[in-house]
Amino acid sequence: MTPASFPARGLADRLTTLFWRHPRILLVLLLTPPLLWLGVVYLGSLAALLLQSFYALDSFSGLIVPEFTLKTYAQLFTQSNLSIILRTLLMASAVTAASTIIAFPIAYYAARYAKGRLKAAFYLGVMLPLWSSYLVKVYAFKLILAKEGIVTWVATSTHTDWLLTAALSLPYVGGNSLATSYLGTFTVFCYVWLPYMILPMQAALERVPTTMLEAAADLGATARQTFWTVTMPLALPGIIAGSIFTFSLTLGDYIIPQIIGNSASYIGMAVYQLQGTAGNIPLAAAFAVVPILIMLVYLTLARKAGAFDAL
């Protein structure tokens, strides 16, 4: 008869026994390298950033004085810096709202009606632009929005150039050309972040069970009532999840307004320019804390709305 157990045959068996008796050893072995990386290098960097924001730049020597002060944060509240923050927030809100509206029909169609190959095509059609080169996409809009570019050409050849002229002559958002106006910056933001809105929205819409829609219809709801009382409330967490991306990404971006826009500054641009040419790392760090705080508030609200389950 064979025995009730086999002897350990070598190191592999003995190590397996050790991991079995003390699962924590395996856990520690698995987690040590990534924790060193993310916990020490990355979190350490964020901590260093936070620390720097409490230092100040000596205005005479141009050197960083490593002493605790709130002076740098106070600088955020000057007129010009406040307008940068406000402008960024307005832009992020506008982009989020517009993305939601543009994304909805795509997400709704893909979730409700597309089947089989068409569904796969829709999915790829959203996923590829999501992942493909950010810079290439921004560049594409430089071509499109240029004064001599395709938008002007289409407007001229369809005799709708009056519309373009009217849009560009709007106060504040207009400008010399699309490429050098708030309208242009806004369009590119919407384009670049749109897929981030579509995917979570589609996922949330797909999770609304068809039986529930049938139940609503069965109870006498019209298609419109079903949509507003059943579909929308259930899909809302997905929409909020998508808005986390569009909002956060707009808050931190500094490339798009640098390439397409009227050279008005945004938080991301301020951070970049302050640390680079100005060498004012403390103020750059303080600026960087602003989107972190805004996103923390946003994420807390989103978590309350159940958006995390939709991520």
């Binding site: 960097s45 931190g252 938080i267």
Partner: peptide, 9 residues
């Protein structure tokens, strides 16, 4: 977090 935060950190 926005890429600019990771970057500046």
């Amino acid at each position: 977090l926005p890429g600019v935060i990771t970057g500046i950190a």
